[in-house]
Design a protein around this nucleic acid. Structure first.
Length: 558
RNA sequence: GCGCCUGUAGCUCAGCCGGACAGAGCAACGGCCUUCUAAGCCGUGGGUCGCGGGUUCGAAUCCUGCCGGGCGCGCCA
């Protein structure tokens, strides 16, 4: 059986129509009846507040309407009992028959349980990280990487055709500064810093020395005799390539890969920027003034017009970005998601205006803002400053605490709220650490199934269990949680919210641990052993699926 | 000054397209290992949901005004 709520919805709708018919009311379309899982155990497995929401239309008090609905509910083998409660809730207690069906559904669909066709195969692009190739990725980029990668996984799981893309800002002034910084360090190492002074806005990180050192290893001192301006192109290219290679390696080791690495420079090489500017002019959204080309962003929600091409002829970052987004949509995506650091939030209205000016619905571009990571060690803040080059890199963190914990921690909170990341906590292998809590549940499950096998008790091939075999609260709770998964996955997809999955899988692991401590799988009567083996296997399947979406390992042993 | 985000238990946070006595983890306290992994489980205590108004049968949730924290407002990227 697929969806319990869909079945319930039909039943309740039928009852509502009956009540309406008796009162001579006609509704063209009933609002969707919402079901939720009540907070307290004695409030049933599912409940609806529809009586309260529709009481006005029916001219009834919520509770009275609820009673009428309940009185007209058709009997259903999946329903054990139905109650009205509180201010007008209708609570549904599901029968044990339903539990067996959920179990069978999970076991039959395996890894696909919880996946959906929400996206209908439509194409979505997720662009994330996109850090300037001027230095190693820091923790903030890491959070964006984890969020973007997991969102891409979730969208894929819910039926979208997903492409992951990294936009390389390799065209602007920053590349020049990177080249000059490297060049200066090269001359400095060689003992003649005066020939190429370090730029005042240069990159001061130690990695620049490493790159300069590599240049000396490969090219020797041959640039010392050349005028700096002549060797600058080499330094620019070499430094950018080196940094980008490091970024790729860090991301790959972090479990993040991209389908496309898109170069900003390529926009210029293909001459796309001028043609995009032409498009804007033709559509009446760009105008010339004071020798510059301006975007008429005040036609949209922006507070002032913005420069596209400076009076010196150099395009702004904004011009590249409009061109880039035009190019994205030209590639045929139905939906484009950009994941940015929260410090760019002021740029969102402008970018949306840009998209709209190109004739595209601005809602086809969604911008997700990722708030900062506050790095702590034993509760104390770790000092960081990009300017001085002293920052904690993603590499540092994943080397210290491991990829699994790092990814998990990055998506534990809503993306739009600040994240406290305690390095010491993430490293602990104790119950303080939520990552291991979940992984441990999976390892325990594997252990039980292994032990069963060792004792010659194979996991039953089918998925059928006797009705009523799961009688305890712990079993029912676990099953009920497993039944929630498709809804939770859907919610995570619609909200683009990985933390929903983290919360879900933590709760699921908790339900499993409670079950495990209260009951034994092996050594009970045969039908119970078989049913519990299947239950445990199903729990393992779902935990493994969710951890897979999070890009976190599901270990068989710990 | 204008704009965006944010303020929930001692700490970190969920809940925020309005609903049943506001949830979880950690920390504190008390229990549970001869039995499938105690990296686990069970129990107890702990909250004026920043403050004041408003809308509603009903507000942590929506509106509004204050107060506190973060960020952004360039012919920078």
């Amino acid at each position: 059986m697929g969806d319990v709520t869909a079945t319930l919805r039909q039943i309740v709708e039928g009852a509502l129509r009956d009540v309406a018919a008796e009162k001579g009311l006609v509704f063209s379309g009933l609002p969707e009846i919402a079901f939720e899982k009540p907070k307290r155990d004695n409030q049933g497995d599912l409940s609806t507040n529809c009586a309260m929401q529709m009481s006005r239309h029916f001219g009834e008090k919520p509770m009275a309407l609820a009673e009428k609905i309940v009185a007209r509910l058709s009997s259903d083998p999946y329903l054990e009992k139905v109650e009205t409660a509180g201010p007008g809730f209708i609570n549904f207690f599901l029968s044990s028959r339903w539990m067996g069906e959920v179990l069978a559904d999970i076991l039959n669909r395996g890894k696909d349980y919880g996946s959906s066709h929400l996206g209908g195969g439509r194409r979505v692009q997720v662009e994330f990280v996109s850090a300037n190739p001027t230095g190693p990725l820091h923790v903030g980029h890491g959070r964006g990487a984890a969020v973007g990668d997991i969102i891409a996984n979730i969208l894929n799981f819910s039926g979208w055709d997903v492409q992951r893309e990294y936009y390389i800002n390799d065209a602007g002034l920053q590349m020049d500064i990177l080249g000059r910084s490297t060049q200066a360090r090269y001359f400095e190492i060689a003992g003649c810093p005066e020939k190429a002074p370090f730029p005042s806005d240069g990159y001061k990180g130690g990695y620049i020395y490493d790159i300069a050192g590599s240049v000396r290893e490969r090219e020797g001192d041959r640039f010392l005799s050349l005028p700096p301006e002549e060797s600058l192109p080499f330094f620019k290219t070499f430094a950018a390539d080196t940094v980008l290679a490091t970024i790729r390696k860090d991301l790959a080791d972090f479990g993040v890969t991209f389908d496309v690495w898109f170069s900003e420079k390529s926009l210029y090489e293909r001459n796309l920027v001028p043609s995009a500017m032409e498009t804007l002019k033709n559509r009446g959204f760009a105008f010339e003034q004071d020798g510059a080309l301006w975007f008429k962003s005040t036609d949209f929600t922006d507070e002032k017009d913005r420069v596209l091409i400076r009076s010196n002829g150099v395009p702004t970052y904004f011009a590249s970005d409009i061109t880039y987004h035009k190019e994205k949509f030209d590639r045929g995506f139905d939906r484009v998601i950009d994941i940015w650091g929260a410090d760019h939030h002021g740029y969102v209205p402008r970018m949306k205006a840009g998209v709209e000016s190109l004739g595209r619905n601005p809602e086809d571009l969604e911008v997700l803002l990722i708030q900062f990571v506050n790095l702590l060690r034993d509760g104390r803040q770790v000092a960081m400053s990009t300017r001085s080059g002293e920052f904690v890199t993603l590499r540092d963190v994943m080397d210290e605490v491991g990829v699994d914990a790092t990814r998990f921690f990055f998506v534990m909170r809503r993306s739009d709220s600040h994240l406290d990341f305690d390095l010491e906590l993430a490293k602990q292998t104790s119950n303080d650490n939520p990552v291991y809590y979940v992984q441990y549940a999976h390892a325990r499950i594997c252990s039980v199934l292994r032990e069963a096998e060792a004792r010659g008790i194979a996991v039953p091939a089918g998925a059928d269990v006797p009705e009523g075999i799961f009688a305890s609260d712990e079993e029912k709770k676990l099953l009920s949680r497993l039944a929630d998964f498709p809804k939770e996955a859907e919610k995570a997809s619609k909200d683009l919210a990985p933390h929903i999955l983290v919360n879900y899988v933590s709760d699921l692991a908790g339900d499993f641990h409670s079950f495990y401590n209260a009951h034994r799988v092996l050594g009970e009567e045969e039908p119970v052993v078989k049913a519990r083996q299947l239950l445990v296997k199903a729990a393992g399947t779902v935990i493994s699926t969710v951890l897979g979406l999070l890009g976190v390992a599901a270990p068989e042993r710990m």
